[in-house]
Nucleic acid binder design. Structure first.
Length: 476
RNA sequence: GGCUCCAUCGUCCAGAGGCCUAGGACACCAGGUUCUCAUCCUGGUAACUCCGGUUCGAAUCCGGAUGGAGUCACCA
């Protein structure tokens, strides 16, 4: 049997990092088993649909370096892969359930439903449909249908049944049918609900393994009931634990920070670093490696080894991984990845000299600007800081003598520059840490920078002299 | 609140009855390298939620408590 997995996002906005992590798992598991990974768009909610979201979902998955074998733009043996284009299929399947008595028409108005709900809330009973239309006679139904009353189709949930399914990660899960609502299958606008559409499509598209977020675990019994109603074999389930906010409290949410997969790329995280992070959150290879390639992951990943507990989205670890990946990039490749983050007024002729100086200091690509701005922008030196470890007098003298050394330099090379400046420092017996930090501040305006001499070479003799002169304290 | 799931260092993972005075990684702390920062190297702090039971023996099995999470729509 060919393994077939799927990801079924709904186009209601940007795809979440949690969803991307699930894409990765479905993708990897399909690849590992020489199977197929399907992308299906679940656009059954017309009200919440966001214009252009379907396109963006597809492009972000590809930006992360993943791809699907069958999907909206590629087609495949079970096309179409967009649910709004499959409406007749769901209608047909809903009707089938009506004719077998597994589902029934419901003509309740939204107002009545809201009223019932409010009453149940007040009485502190579980808020469920009161099955008002469940026992309508066939003549009553025919009458209402004839008078064009709007209707939905609901699942006739059996009484007193224990519903069982197996989750690859957790094992057997049992739920009593009594707590399951007579779920709406087909909405009054003719669109299916998620529950109907997902079961019908997963079956029709021959999906063998359903790996989806843990939040679906409580609606899985409804799906099981549907499989039973149709007499179809259940797929294999693996409910992937969700991401918790970095503070460890609650499902990762927009309110507590960034959640969209796109925004992490925008912030300068490398897609392969993101993927690596997803890999080792809640799972690890046998030998405890933390850094692994997609191919290695595909080889070693097994959904049943995923930890069953929800995991904290630890940004510190992500930063570490991203730094590792940035340092692994060749300078050419780094330059390419950096393009969107390089300011327009950046002196491109200097980039090949600047890049080696900052590459191991980059945690995120977005930091490039703040790490390199002093190379070409006007700097602001804090004069209090400049004289902090000394006196204005001494600093003034240090700067003047340094200017002389720099001016008389015959060769503008880091080796020569370092040699002469060190010679000066040793001769004058200036305190190393004070003198070099003072110089650093004068040249760059910052306390943390790449090595001073290389930096000065890149900045250029003229600008260095200008900055040194400008830094001389005047109040002596 | 009902239902479901989960429970090892702050975080993630290892541990599938004796190898555990619990191991690795991130973070943190200290030290080394060094002109600062970063990288790199060394070392350190730090956990089996609790209570019962099973067993010669439990982090590992069972039960309960507690805690955390998810979910209860004509949304997915």
């Amino acid at each position: 049997m060919t393994v077939r997995t799927r990801m079924a996002p709904s186009p209601t906005g940007d795809i979440h990092v949690g969803s991307m992590s699930i894409v990765l798992k479905n993708y990897a598991f399909a690849k590992k088993n020489q199977g197929k990974f399907v992308l299906r768009i679940e656009d059954t909610d017309q009200e919440r649909e966001v214009e252009g979201a379907t396109k963006r979902i597809q492009s972000i998955i590809r930006d992360y370096g993943l791809d699907w074998d069958e999907g909206p733009d590629k087609g495949g043996p079970y096309a179409p892969y967009i649910q709004s284009e499959r409406l007749s299929i769901y209608k047909e399947h809903a009707d089938q359930l009506i004719s077998t008595g597994k589902a029934y028409y419901c003509f309740c108005s939204k107002e009545r439903l809201a009223e019932v709900h409010a009453q149940q809330l007040a009485a502190k009973t579980p808020p469920m449909y009161d099955r008002h239309c469940r026992s309508l006679s066939s003549t009553e139904v025919a009458e209402k249908l004839n008078s064009k009353l709007p209707y939905v189709i609901r699942l006739r949930v059996p009484d007193n049944q224990t519903i069982t399914f197996t989750d690859l990660i957790r094992g057997k899960i049992e739920v009593q049918s009594a707590i399951i609502d007579d779920q709406v299958l087909l909405k009054s606008d003719g669109f299916p609900t998620y529950h109907l559409a997902v079961v019908v499509d997963d079956y029709l598209m021959k999906i063998t393994h359903i790996m989806r977020g843990e939040e679906w675990i409580s609606s899985t019994p409804k799906h099981v009931l549907l499989y039973q109603a149709y007499g179809w074999e259940q797929p294999i389930y693996a409910h992937i634990p969700i991401f918790l906010n970095p503070d460890g409290k609650g499902k990762m949410s927009k309110r507590k920070g960034t959640v969209s997969a796109q925004s992490f790329l925008d912030a300068g995280y490398l897609p392969e670093a993101m993927l690596n992070f997803f890999m080792i959150l809640g799972w690890g290879p046998k030998d405890q490696r933390e850094i692994l390639t997609l191919d290695e992951y595909i080889q070693e990943f097994d959904p049943k080894d995923i930890s069953a507990k929800s995991v904290v989205f630890d940004l510190k670890k992500l930063d570490w991984i991203n730094g590792m990946y940035i340092r692994k990039l060749s300078l050419d490749e780094l330059k390419k990845r950096l393009q969107p983050f390089i300011p327009t007024n950046f002196p491109t002729d200097k980039i090949d000299h600047i890049l080696p100086l900052v590459s191991e200091r980059l945690v995120k690509l977005s930091e490039f600007d703040s790490l390199t701005d002093f190379f070409y922008k006007e700097i602001q030196t804090d004069h209090d800081l400049l004289v902090k470890k000394s006196t204005s007098e001494e600093v003034s003298s240090q700067l003047n003598q340094t200017i002389q050394v720099v001016e008389s330099l015959d060769k503008w090379s880091p080796q020569k520059l370092e040699e002469d400046i060190r010679q000066l420092q040793e001769k004058q017996e200036w305190k190393k840490s004070q003198y070099f930090m003072m110089l650093r501040l004068a040249i760059t305006g910052k306390q943390a920078t790449p090595p001073l001499f290389e930096t000065m070479i890149v900045i250029g003799k003229e600008v260095c002299l200008k900055r040194l002169t400008a830094s001389i304290p005047h109040n002596v």
